[in-house]
């Protein structure tokens, strides 16, 4: 039983991270119907920039909280600028092109960012400096660290903030209008280009935070970390219903839990034939199954195909 609870807790932490990244995919898809393939790379850049800053600050007498705040203050704008630039350079010129053209440029951008990061930060893992005193708490036989609790709490807070932004502000209303119908929104005086830029910038800010959290959770970062993370987050977005913000949160949590439980039990399920290093295939299986059997996701609406 405590294994189950432990995997559930791990899944919750992992799921919060996926959810945060999934929001970036789902917001962009909601508005542009584009899979922003490069979003995972923005997460990676967030982690890398933050770790670089922390590495510089590690020798100074600043308190750890201040160091983390400074790192975030550098990483978040860096990611926002990256996201903004990606949209302007690689997606905007193709806005009227058929669906697959921007998808191909998105893949190109993703590869470019990954390789630039490899040149800048090298092929080796960059580690998170030991700033935080990790405390282990015991809950009914399972353990959870203060870092993990902070991740879940902060992710929840940020997601609540995002929901408020989308539901209660002028910008949020403009975003929803653009997602519903871009032409009509434009006619109603919404500056669609600004809304799209804002969507990329907000998603990238979330990605920066997620990147820092991932680095803190695993204690390291790597130039290629964004690829798998991005795919899983995309899967989470599809699972929840792409374009749907609460859906991305739900999908992220569910996928995290499925993965943790799956990795914990796959050995038992297959009689020891498959081990926990197959953890990564769960996301892909979920992705394929959801797309084949319920492409609209859990919270999405079924879109009637038009002739």
């Amino acid at each position: 039983m405590d294994i189950f609870l432990q995997q559930l807790l791990n899944g919750l932490v992992l799921g919060s991270l996926y959810a945060l990244v999934a929001l970036g995919y789902t917001m962009v898809y909601g508005i542009l119907e584009l899979i922003n393939f490069a979003h995972g790379e923005v997460v990676m850049i967030g982690a890398m920039v933050a770790l670089t800053v922390l590495g510089v600050l590690a020798g100074t007498p600043l308190p750890p909280a201040a160091m983390l705040a400074i790192a975030a203050a550098v990483a978040i704008p860096a990611c926002m600028a990256t996201g903004f630039t990606i949209e302007r350079v690689a997606y905007r010129p193709l806005r009227r092109a058929p669906r697959l053209a921007p998808l191909i440029t998105a893949i190109g951008v993703s590869i470019v960012l990954q390789n630039v990061a490899m040149i800048v930060w090298g092929r080796q893992y960059v580690s998170f400096p030991p700033l935080i005193d990790v405390h282990i708490h015991e809950v009914a036989g399972a353990t959870i660290t203060n870092v993990q609790i902070a991740i879940v709490a902060l992710a929840a807070l940020i997601m609540a903030g995002l929901l408020l932004l989308v539901r209660r502000t002028r910008l949020g209303r403009a975003m929803r209008a653009t997602a519903q119908n871009r032409e009509v929104a434009e006619l109603m005086g919404v500056d669609v280009n600004r809304v799209i830029s804002a969507t990329f910038v907000i998603g990238s800010a979330l990605a920066a935070v997620a990147g820092m959290m991932v680095a803190a959770y695993y204690g390291l970062a790597h130039y290629a970390m964004g690829f798998m993370l991005g795919l899983k987050a995309f899967t989470a977005a599809v699972l929840g219903g792409i374009g749907n913000i609460p859906g991305a949160m739900l999908g992220g949590l569910l996928l995290g839990i499925i993965e943790s439980l799956g990795a914990g039990y796959i050995g038992d399920l297959t009689g020891g034939f498959l081990g926990s290093h197959y953890q990564d295939i769960f996301a892909f299986l979920v992705l394929i199954l959801v797309l084949v059997f319920r492409p609209s996701g859990l919270l999405g609406e079924r879109i009637a195909d038009r002739a």
Partner: peptide, 24 residues
Amino acid sequence: PTLRLRGDYLAIVTLGFGEIVRIF
């Protein structure tokens, strides 16, 4: 099972399939 999916979804599913094969 996947060819009735829309183009971009098909792209991602095939990508996933490629990765599954490699993981195995």
